[in-house]
Every structure is written in C-alpha cells, then in structure tokens.
Amino acid sequence: MMEERQNSSPLHHLHPSTKVLCLLLFLVWAMVFNHPLYHLAITALVVIINLIGGSFRRALSFWKFYLVIACAAVLLWSLFLDEPGPAYNILGRHIATSAILYGIGMGLRLISLILFAVVFSSTTPVEAFTYGLRRLGLPYRVGFSLSLAFRLVPSVYQTAKMVESAQQARGHNPRKGGPLRRIFGFVPLMIPTILYTLRSANNLSLALECKGFGLKRKRTSLARYRIGWGDILTLALFIVGLSASIWLRLKGYGAVIDRL
C-alpha cells in the first residue's frame, strides 16, 4: 500500500530510522575537518548522494545561495579570526591566510550540510521522517505533532495568501512602504491568518478525538518498513567514514587552525 510513491530511488527505500541516523552521523562528520580540501571531498560525497537520491536538480537550484554563503563565510572568518602566520594587509586590516582558508572550509561545510538536508528531505516523506524518529524513541504524540506541523505549513501559507488578497482587495498592501510600515502592515495579515488557523485547529482537535486519537490502547500502524541489506551497508559506510575521519583529524590532518 505504501509503495505507490511517484519518485523512487535507492534512498527512498531505506528505512527511515537509517536515514535519521545517517543525518545525525553526518552532522558530526561535517564538523570533523576545517581544511577546505577535506571539505571539498565531503561536499563531493554529498553531491554523489544527491545524484543517487535524484535530488541533484533541486540541490542545484540553490546555487546562488551557496555562492552567497561561501562569500559571507570567507569574509566573516577573515575578519573575526586573528591568527598568526602569513597574512595580507587589506584596508589596514591584518588578515591571515589561514583565516581565509578556514573561511573557505566553513563555507564548504555549510554547503555540504545544506546539500545533505536537501537529499534527506527529498527522499524522506514527512511521515517517514517522524516514523524514523519514533522508532528511535520519540513518543508517538510528539512525533504526531511534529508531522502535523509539517502538514499545516502549506495551509497556513495558503491562508496567509488568501488573507493578503482579501486585504489587497480593500486597498491594503503590506509589501509597500518603509521597514516600519511593513512590520505594522503585517499585523492585518497575521491576525486573520492566525485566527483562521486557530479555528481550524479547534476543529482538527475535535476531529482527532472523534477518530480515537489518545485512546489508551497500543496503537498499530499501516506503514511497514523493513530493515534490509541496503540499510546495513549505508550505516556501515557512514560509521566507517566518520571513524576514519576522526582518526585522521586526531593524527593532525584536515585542519588549517586548531579548532572545530
């Protein structure tokens, strides 16, 4: 019953818990090095994962964003890190080469984290995500609330757009004027949106209770995921990769500066 998804890649078939664990492992992995070359390797790995997961196109569509991130990281860290060693003098400021390299490394780190998040969210439906979290110990109600939050975002957004049209039809445009005007302009947009959402929330709570939500019984599930060889292999790859990286870093490789 659950197989009829339109998109399907090897990553779609992984057990949700595997994917959540891999995400957590990757969060650590991305922190191990700060040398740009090592980060380049990690970024390349995530690009490959995106290719396998079929989300490369989506990931690529954010390219402008990556560029901004990279520039901002280089700029910020060059200014904030006062490192010894070779340096440039730019506009009277002492800027260390190592700080620039560190900045590039950090830019790549952010990009690889985003790329991983893209492939994760593209290959893991919300229910699978919260199912994975539940299997790792998150209580059912908490998981339910989290997945409900995901479902409500588009409807809140739609409501907000509807409200915006209704206000626009009365000659009000929250996107015009100076910053302060805009902030106050969003009050007429937000209030009906929130009230509308609250009213539906009340109806939804009622519907949930009438559908037996919160009955003190053991809940069953139609969703069935099985752990396969793919899961074991994927997890093994991540664990080996991460351990090797930590070992390398402890041996003194992969760092421009001695910090995370």
């Binding site: 609330s145 939050a149 975002v153 588009p154 959402t197 929330a201 709570s205």
Partner: peptide
C-alpha cells in the same frame, strides 16, 4: 491534551510559514 498537541503543531506551522 489533544488541543495542546494540535496547538504545538499550529505554533510550529505558523512560525515556520510566517
């Protein structure tokens, strides 16, 4: 409490959407 569980989701959704 069902209402508060739903309100958690509503807070999250409104926060994220806005």
């Amino acid at each position: 409490k069902t209402r508060l569980i739903v309100l958690v989701a509503v807070t999250a959704a409104v926060y994220a959407a806005l």
